[in-house]
Design a protein around this nucleic acid. Structure first.
Lengths: 336, 336
DNA sequence: GGCCAGCTTGTAACCGGTTACAAGAATCCT
DNA sequence: AGGATTCTTGTAACCGGTTACAAGCTGGCC
């Protein structure tokens, strides 16, 4: 009623101009076969004359289908999320879908609001919230929304999940560092309350203990800054360290930058390893040894699953993806 | 009519359950003041019981306002776009807006389709299409859509524009390289048909000529690969070169990687410079000298302008932003 | 010619909200 | 008490599409 419509042409305007019914205009625009060519031509001419463009919102409402997918992320910082988004976008475009972004900042209240806001805007949701308890989140929502969860805390919601095997990945990395001859391996953890971070720390601790080594865990926050701080702390406390395994690549990069500033050579004096294999890991020097999660592909697969789910197809309940070890220079002791 | 509605509660269901009219339910949900507390309570209880969540699509239609902003980009590769998107997301969240992503791949046909698809889905558009002629694009669309253009070819559309002064920026960089003592400065251009690339090449050429130096321009494509290829070519053709000024940071990084592989030291043997100041530029080593465009801020400002435009406020027609020179190690000759 | 099948086309109800308008109830005057 | 005013509430039209259904038209066939 209100609203600042500049008076754009509607389907009724076109119908009047072409002297046909709205149904016919609709049929022409939806390419239904049973329209006489002469009439079709008349409609198209009228539409062109009036600069008519169909109103997607109205279409969505009457068809109960939006063609959009809601992406609910905790943040957009860093290459991790942008890679994931890129993968999603690519796949969504293949399925003729748009992506509607919604950033649920840290607390659960905003999360709930964000999700509620999506109702009627999207056909389904991709939720990535490693820092929140999803059961609480979805409790507030009407049941039955198609959704795919990416790297979330396990839950009893019966929604398809896609996860990276962070425990196994971290263990693999620890074994690699041990193979390289390192013994005093320190882990810089991710943010508290983040499932992925917790799993990586767990994998690290298990592998260390399995090798008869003592785990040492420093707090971190998945960002460059926390890598830097971890190094400062190691330095201040004179901790003996052969290798630093950071919970993700950005932290590892912070570690490397801090070590460089201190004049400590990587990898000859201290080895460094990360997790994620963001594009940057390859470009920095020395190249960062890391666990490769094909982030863009994860995103793409998430979209793929969701589209299937929306179309009513069967979708695997859970997929656990194994990250692969990428060995670059940062981890290698000259004498292995 | 069709559609796979799982039968979620509508405003009418809530009205029936609470034994009030739909208007009252609507009033409660929109926090209008004139509702008796007892009735409000009844409505809220009914809504909770039915797990009612308002249908944004329907709301949008009747209010002629979606609360979403359409972002039309040519691509999502690389840090440039993700930085911009991040800035946009931040600002949009401040204004309670969602972002609807649409990737208009390279050709104009898809571009037009993408834009048409936005009608009725968004309140306005941010268009970033340095590679397309926008007049052709918008000719196909109904006039009067609020839109802000980012780094686009000049046009007579009367839409607010936000642009980086690429000509001046490139010239500044050339002068800096000359100040560092370099003379044989080669430029690796961006993709053909891209306005930003063309402007940077123009700024480069003008500054070189002003200094009495001969411009040498190699083709490129704004990506790492093209930087690498440029180096190969210089190598193959035995071109004498003191410095390579790439059209953007990713290309410059490709150049540095290729030089490193060839055993050519940066900056002592060849200096390198880029443009954009993507986050990576600071992290790579040696640090990359570049022109800083605050990409995220550009995105945020774009959104800000667009929101003002949507709200009917006056908006400056054009803003040309000056990039700033960021001097890092990659450009400096030991003896300046 | 008459009847039926198959097209084409139009009418009107519907999607799920918002809101102008009117009516009814409560409050405040004098 | 009676009338004016204010507040609360409901009815129904509207946003701009889609589509079930019916009606009109055409042509084929006996």
């Amino acid at each position: 009623m209100t609203g600042k419509d500049i008076g754009q042409a509607t389907i009724r305007d076109v119908a009047r101009e072409a002297d046909v019914s709205v149904a016919s205009v609709s049929r022409v625009f939806n390419r239904l076969p049973n329209v006489r060519p002469e009439l079709k031509e008349r409609v198209e001419q009228a539409a062109r004359k009036l600069h008519y463009v169909p109103h997607a919102g109205a279409r969505n409402l009457s068809m109960a289908r939006t063609g959009s997918i809601g992406i609910v992320l905790p943040d957009l910082h860093g290459e991790y999320f942008s890679e994931m988004l890129r993968g999603m976008e690519r796949e969504a475009a293949l399925h003729q879908r748009h992506l509607l972004l919604s950033n649920m900042h840290l607390d659960i209240g905003h999360g709930i609001e964000a999700l509620r806001n999506m109702r009627g805007r999207v056909d389904g949701l991709i939720v990535m919230a490693p820092h929140l308890n999803l059961d609480d989140l979805f409790a507030q929502l009407p049941p039955g929304i198609p959704a795919v969860l990416l790297n979330c805390r396990a839950n009893g919601l019966g929604m398809p999940e896609l996860r990276v095997d962070n425990v196994a990945g971290a263990a693999t990395m620890v074994r690699h560092l041990i193979d390289c001859g390192h013994r005093a391996i320190v882990h810089v953890e991710g943010p508290e309350g983040n499932v992925e971070a917790a799993d990586r720390a767990r994998g690290y601790a298990q592998a260390m203990e399995a090798a008869g080594l003592k785990p040492v865990i420093l707090p971190g926050n998945f960002d460059e800054e926390s890598g830097r701080r971890a190094v400062e702390r190691l330095q201040a406390e004179q901790v003996d360290v052969d290798a630093i395994f950071a919970a993700n690549d950005m932290t590892a990069i912070g570690v490397m930058v801090a070590l460089r500033d201190l004049g400590v050579d990587v990898p000859t004096q201290v080895a460094v390893a990360g997790f994620d294999n963001i594009p940057l890991a390859r470009l920095i020097s020395p190249g960062l040894t890391t666990m490769a999660v094909d982030i863009a592909d994860m995103g793409a697969r998430g979209i793929n699953r969701l589209v299937a789910l929306i179309d009513g197809e069967a979708v695997p309940q859970m997929e656990l993806r194994q990250p692969g070890l990428i060995i670059r220079t940062s981890s290698q002791l000259s004498a292995a």
